[in-house]
Amino acid sequence: MQPVRDFFTGVGFFFQGLGWVARHGRWWLFGLIPALIAFAIYVAALVYLGNNAMELADWMTPFADSWGWRDAFRVMISIVIFAGGLALAVVTFTAVTLAIGEPFYEKLSAAVDPLPDEVEQPWWKTLPRSIRDSLVTLGWVLMFTIPLFFLGFIPVIGQTVIPVIGAAISGFFLTVELTTLSLERRGLIRKQRFAVLRASKPSALGFGVAVFLLFLIPFVSVIAMPAAVAGAALLVRNRLSPVPAEAP
């Protein structure tokens, strides 16, 4: 079945990216720098959230002051708050790391996917556009993932169907973020990039879901980030259409 084969072809591009950075260790170390910075920021934020989740739960639930079981209720709310923060960290890590490491990952992507006669733009010109596009993509991600987070509390469905849907949505938007570097260098604006990825959705999903599942493992998101950028460049170079005729 072709969609299934395309899905696993997409998965394979991540491992191709892993192989590329394994053969080019200098680029892997180069790509670790912004990922480590972003990871340190997220760890500090999550530690702060964990230490203050109970106080935040108290502030959010003044109506429970007279309840006999208010402490147990607020502990549950604090767990939900921290889980929500952790989920938000997972879905935003790539966008924040790419924004921090724009000049790093632009060079890494260009090394994996060189284009003839390319005119390199200074990073300070591309960074504002990259941040703007990342915010738009993040808006789409949150529009889907916030309802899915609450649907995850539904018995049975919340532990089976919802995680699969969430992984597919998060994976697709991870591919959107990671392929931006190579597709932008081909002159594609945001709407055109989405059109290209929708046209090759099984491959885009396969690549993104593989990255998303790996990024759920603590610290793996850091060491695998250069491989994800390299794999995305190879996905664009070898699988995706070069330039769509017109954005829909």
Rank of each mutant, 00 (worst) to 15 (best):
I165A: 09
N52S: 11
T61A: 13
N238D: 14
F212P: 02
F63Y: 14
W20G: 08
A35Y: 00
L115A: 06
L46C: 10
M76I: 15
G206E: 03
A72V: 15
I33K: 12
V236T: 14
I33M: 11
P122N: 12
I81Y: 03
I41M: 03
F39G: 00
S66C: 04
I131N: 00
I81E: 09
A224V: 07
L86S: 12
F73Q: 13
P242C: 11
E120H: 14
D6E: 15
H24L: 06
L138N: 01
V164T: 12
N52V: 05
D71H: 13
V47S: 11
L18A: 11
Q159W: 07
S78H: 01
G84V: 05
I157C: 07
T126V: 11
A247L: 14
V222H: 06
V176R: 05
L18C: 08
V209Q: 06
L135W: 10
N52T: 04
T145R: 00
D117M: 00
S203E: 12
F173H: 12
V236M: 10
L183C: 00
M143N: 01
P128E: 14
S200K: 11
A83N: 07
V156L: 15
L115R: 09
V119G: 01
F8C: 06
A35K: 00
E118L: 11
V96W: 04
T126N: 07
F172S: 03
A57T: 03
G171T: 07
P202D: 10
F149W: 09
T180L: 12
